[in-house]
């Protein structure tokens, strides 16, 4: 606090502008972890990245804070790409990435925490029970636009796509080998819940969301259903054992080999002690 007051006294305009810009950007302050070598961990851990992972890491962070009272864990979202960029530039101590690591990201140290699957969802009243990969591609590229062409009722389809930059979109496009420029969608959504609500509110919609989200909402009575892909049922079980094809690992990453506080947190996030949190968040813990 004193430090800030000093800055104000020396250069009021500069710090006001900085504060304003920081507030507008939502960029975390440049405060990085201060770890001490003592047995009691303390300091602040800034974690940024994938929005898929953020609620999970935030929950793990809360439990970690209750174990080490002097530790603060600050979790911010911004997508996997931000997770990678922030970890690389040192803006964050740990980055969150909700996909497999790319080849040009080999310089980073990645630690898998859980798995997530992307499932295709339809409205519960839609008579269509399964779609082949080719049919999904044809639907998303606008070659099939009516449900009667895939064995459903005579009704135009509402194709729900995700906004650019979301890792769910990347996983989906990567699996079906479609380019986003070729996708002909009627609705573009942001997060998973919005996708579930859109499909639940439209009997002729098709969309894709994280299986964890869809399975949970389905169990809560939301009128949606998950389609199987390549004959494999979409469920947390098939995601865990790796048989479900459209699934992805969830990583937390660091630039340098983790030490001190970051290492303690990563070890904790990978330990069995957080499996209940992972399940609560409808992700799939890794097999031990």
């Amino acid at each position: 606090m004193c430090k800030y007051l000093n800055i104000f006294r020396v250069n009021p305009c500069g710090s006001l502008a900085t504060l304003l810009i920081l507030a507008l950007l939502g960029i975390p302050g440049s405060v990085t972890a201060q770890t001490t070598a003592t047995d009691q961990l303390s300091g602040k851990l800034v974690i940024t990245g994938a929005s898929t992972l953020a609620p999970l890491i935030a929950e793990i962070g809360k439990r970690f804070e209750s174990l080490y009272v002097k530790v603060r864990v600050d979790v911010q979202t911004g997508g996997s790409s931000r997770g990678v960029a922030d970890a690389r530039q040192g803006l964050a101590d740990i980055g969150m990435v909700s996909r497999a690591m790319k080849d040009d990201e080999k310089d980073l140290h990645a630690f898998p925490v859980a798995r997530d699957g992307v499932g295709i969802i339809l409205h519960k009243q839609n008579p269509v029970q399964a779609l082949t990969d080719e049919q999904v591609v044809a639907i998303y590229t606008g070659k099939i636009t009516n449900w009667k062409d895939v064995g459903g009722k005579d009704a135009p389809m509402t194709v729900v796509n995700k906004a650019e930059g979301r890792s769910t979109l990347e996983v989906f496009l990567h699996y079906f080998k479609i380019k986003n420029t070729d996708v002909k969608a009627q609705v573009v959504i942001g997060d998973n819940e919005q996708g579930v609500k859109t499909v639940a509110g439209n009997r002729h919609a098709i969309g894709y969301v994280s299986i964890g989200t869809a399975e949970y909402d389905e169990s809560q009575g939301v009128p949606i259903k998950l389609l199987s892909v390549g004959g494999v049922t979409a469920s947390t079980e098939t995601v865990r054992n790796g048989t479900f094809p459209i699934s992805r690992p969830l990583h937390i990453i660091t630039r340098t080999p983790p030490v001190g506080l970051a290492k303690a947190f990563i070890d904790y996030a990978q330990s069995k002690a957080v499996h209940d949190i992972i399940t609560q968040q409808y992700f799939v813990p890794l097999a031990d």
Partner: peptide
């Protein structure tokens, strides 16, 4: 709008949003 209005419009003329 999402849970009431959009489904209503979808009944008249899909897609709704």
């Amino acid at each position: 709008g999402l849970v009431v209005l959009v489904p209503l419009i979808a009944e008249i003329q899909p897609p709704g949003p």
